[in-house]
């Protein structure tokens, strides 16, 4: 359940930014989560729902944008789409494919009033 800790970190970043920019309310929140990141989007949304309650971002529309996984096959050198960390290379069926993208966990932006 480290999604709860992630949700608390997100609230922290959102409230800090909103206060610094003189906002009184956060109405929208967009996150970028990589496909290979160690986080379950459904669980994160559930935790955010709980954590945002009573905060500046209470009731904010929360959206998770999934960033695609990408990797480079160390066997054939191809840059390939990767949907799980241990999947074989879709081109040569070789191992290992080193992830080069899709492990991000970012707060992208917020909509404020």
């Amino acid at each position: 359940m480290h999604e709860m800790a992630l949700a608390e970190s997100i609230l922290n970043i959102v409230e800090e930014t909103a206060r610094n920019r003189g906002a009184i309310r956060v109405t929208g929140l967009r996150l970028e989560i990589g496909e290979l990141a160690n986080v379950e989007s459904e669980a994160l949304l559930f935790c955010l729902d709980v954590v945002l309650r009573g905060s500046l971002a209470d009731g904010a529309q929360t959206e998770i944008l999934t960033l695609p996984g990408q990797g480079q096959c160390l066997e054939c050198g191809a840059i390939v789409r990767l949907s799980a960390l241990y999947d074989p290379c879709p081109q040569c069926d070789g191992y290992p494919v080193r992830p080069t993208g899709g492990q991000e966990m970012r707060v992208k932006d917020i909509q404020v009033e």
Binding site: L6, S9, N12, M105, R106, V107, K108, D109, Q111, V112
Partner: peptide, 15 residues
């Protein structure tokens, strides 16, 4: 329309 503030910050930045 509200204002959009770009953040682009790692969720675990504080840690």
């Amino acid at each position: 329309e509200g204002r959009l503030i770009s953040i682009e910050r790692d969720i675990l930045a504080k840690n």
